[in-house]
Design a protein around this nucleic acid. Structure first.
Length: 671
DNA sequence: ACGCCACCTATTTTT
DNA sequence: TAGGTGGCGT
């Protein structure tokens, strides 16, 4: 506590009323939350079981848990809840499933599962790309607490009407499967607390103080959950930064920050403006940039770390030259400063921008870490095994059944499944139940019916074994009895990839076993494990390992949020890339500016910004104008450079300056 | 059931 | 341009 600054200390000590902490980039917000947890327990006598801290990522939750435990003398405080919104929602759902009309063994569908379900519902009528957009729309409806009836009533055009109808069917299907999706993990608890006074009172009595991290990223449902949990006690510490709100496109409502002041008249606001991360110059430039956005709360970051190096802006001929230059810069800087590769990050707007950098890094045999690849749980083999486990936990999980009915092949082709589906709809049962109906053969024919029944009976046996046995062991037995390894050997191109994929399955099983052992305090049922794993991403472990490894980091600006690097290279600072074209069309670049702000404030010591004069896009070469954000930086702190070498570079630089002068004119006040 | 071809799309994606 | 996907033919 003694090492906290005055504002941090005030935020920690403010305990008897709602508090909003406006925490700038690198201002020690995680410290405030963890110190406050410790303070509430040690100095104020709160029972750990009455304290809740919510984050958005498992990684943040883990870090917070570890740091809080360290402050409390190393022992993990018993009963303290530090989790993501979704994990808390899952816990609530597990305890309260009956009141919400779910059976105890409900399934949890991740984003891919719900997309697959929607595709199933849309079968035949699918317009290219509509499935994905419909899923996003439905997800945003749900996270805004708009139910399907309301969506239907509000639909203004044919497309909205179509999606609203799909939404209604989707919700019905989830109910029929006894399944919830990721949005439900927040929405259902909200509905419970809204509609059930007894449950509300019980939860509000448990939640004496609630701390919320990255508050600017909460959506409507999450905000309502927060309100319902804290009740009239109003024990809330919300920590956030409106300038780092970059998820509005996903339903996050940065206005939730300002909304707090309206909903809680007693609200206290504390600003953390001292950055312990970046140099003064980087903060000055970032402040200057973000000043171009409208603000409800004024905030000015400062630093005691010295003024630091100038910010470099490098004009490049094209995308390839940009990649080569950036890599050359890293190599040169590392050589002259004796740094590690892990200290450098290349940040960009869109994932596709990583390509040229990957290529050049590979050419130079420089190890790099690329964020944003296929996650562990998106791999086919993992999805397959997970589907089996979900089915063993919940035989009514039709989505899981459809996925693996014929994987490995057991002669249950589309026709058979189609007929089984029609039969199940008619009977109003799940697919597995339908498969066990006595008169199945009349509908499917004797042979297919026999095969379907045999599989269903095998599933029932698995379910019974899972209910009896220890979950992780059951999982291993299951994988062996379907000879999944054999299936992989048959379907993979070469033995090498078959082995790699089987290793992934092995990793999953080992992970389950470890999870099963760790959950000493109770629920080791298969459905509990499966749900936990759905929320968990093993990729996060890979990411952490990558963080340890000495590699150049490549990631999107979004993925970089919350991280920091000694040396940051932001690339592609061009109109229509950053700010992105769609934001220009919508005439709303504020979020893009925040994105640039997030990128800049990741840097501790040096910041380099690059742009290309032309770029290949969709097969043709297009001219690019430097980003307006470059024109918004303090001129005296920025050093402009060309691509080096040829006279062409000088022209590029001149053109860049001309563009910027032009932009400055356009952006000047009063125009 | 698998493989190939033609066609479509192209921003970000904590859970 | 390139990658992913849906449809169709073998």
């Amino acid at each position: 506590m003694s090492t906290l600054n005055a504002q941090q200390r005030a935020a920690v000590r403010h305990i008897d009323g709602p508090l909003l902490v406006l925490a700038g980039a690198g201002s020690g917000k995680t410290r405030v939350i963890t110190e406050k947890l410790a303070y509430l327990i040690d100095a104020c006598g709160y029972r750990p079981g009455h304290l809740f801290a919510l984050t958005f990522t498992n990684k943040a939750a883990r870090e917070m848990k570890t740091r809080a435990a360290a402050l409390l003398g190393g022992k993990r405080p018993k009963g303290l809840t530090v989790s993501t919104f979704h994990t808390l929602g899952l816990d609530m759902l597990r305890r309260e499933h009956a009141r919400l009309g779910y059976r105890h063994n409900f399934s949890l569908l991740d984003g891919h599962d719900s997309l697959a379900l929607l595709r199933e519902l849309m079968r035949g009528e699918t317009v290219a790309g509509e499935d994905e957009r419909a899923r996003e729309r439905i997800s945003r409806w749900k996270s805004a607490l708009v139910d399907s009836e309301t969506a239907l009533a509000q639909a203004e055009d044919a497309r909205a009407l179509y999606r609203a109808r799909l939404y209604a069917r989707y919700e019905r299907a989830l109910r029929a499967y006894n399944a919830v999706d990721l949005d439900d993990l927040v929405v259902r608890p909200v509905r419970l607390l809204q509609g059930d006074a007894e449950a509300r009172e019980r939860w509000q009595n448990r939640v004496r103080h609630l701390l919320v991290d990255e508050y600017q990223d909460t959506n409507e449902a999450q905000y309502q959950l927060v309100r319902l949990l804290i009740g009239v006690r109003e024990g809330l510490t919300a920590v956030g930064d409106d300038d780092q709100s970059v998820y509005a496109w996903r339903g996050a409502q940065p206005e939730n920050l300002a909304q707090l002041a309206r909903d809680f008249p007693r609200l206290e606001v504390i600003k953390l403006e001292q950055s312990y991360r970046s140099t003064g110059r980087i903060l000055k430039a970032a402040n200057r940039l973000i000043a171009h956005n409208a603000h409800v709360f004024e905030k000015r970051l400062w630093s005691a770390l010295g003024y630091g190096d100038p910010i470099r802006v490098i004009a490049c001929r094209d995308g390839d030259a940009e990649a080569q230059r950036v890599v050359a810069e890293i190599l040169h800087h590392r050589f002259t400063h004796r740094t590690r590769l892990g200290e450098y990050a290349i940040l960009y707007r869109g994932n596709h921008q990583a390509r040229p950098f990957e290529r050049v890094l590979r050419e130079h045999q420089i190890p790099y870490y690329l964020s944003g690849g296929t996650s562990f749980f998106e791999r086919t083999e993992i999805k397959d095994v997970m589907a089996y486990l979900r089915l063993a936990a919940n035989l009514d999980d039709d989505a899981a059944f459809l996925r693996i009915a014929n994987t490995p092949r057991r002669e249950l082709g589309p026709t058979t499944i189609e007929r089984l589906g029609a039969f199940a709809r008619e009977r109003g049962t799940s697919l597995v139940s339908a498969a066990l109906e006595p008169d199945l053969a009349e509908r499917l024919g004797a042979r297919p019916a026999g095969r379907v029944r045999a599989f269903a009976e095998w599933l029932v046996a698995m379910r019974d074994r899972a209910a009896r046995g220890e979950a992780a062991g059951v999982a291993r037995g299951l994988v062996e009895s379907i000879d999944y390894a054999g299936h992989l050997r048959e379907t993979s191109k070469d033995l090498d990839s078959a082995e790699r994929r089987m290793q992934n399955v092995e990793d999953l099983l080992a992970w389950l076993e470890r999870l099963g052992r760790r959950e000493a305090e109770g629920d080791v049922s298969l459905e509990a494990l499966v749900a936990k794993v759905t929320l968990l991403d093993v990729l996060e472990r890979e990411q952490e390992e990558a963080g340890e490894a000495d590699r150049v980091h490549l990631m999107t600006l979004h993925a970089a949020k919350g991280l920091e690097f000694p040396h940051v290279l932001m690339v592609g600072l061009e109109e229509s890339l950053l700010p992105h074209r769609s934001s220009l069309e919508a005439d709303d670049v504020a979020e893009e500016r925040r994105l640039a702000y997030v990128g800049m404030t990741r840097a501790r010591k040096t910041l380099t910004l690059t742009f290309a004069a032309r770029r290949r896009r969709y097969g043709e070469t297009v001219e690019c104008a430097p980003s307006r954000f470059l024109a918004e930086l303090p001129e005296e702190d920025v050093v402009w450079e060309g691509n080096g070498g040829a006279g062409d570079a000088e022209r590029t630089r001149e053109r860049g300056r001309a563009h910027l002068a032009n932009l400055r004119g356009l952006l000047a006040p009063g125009t």
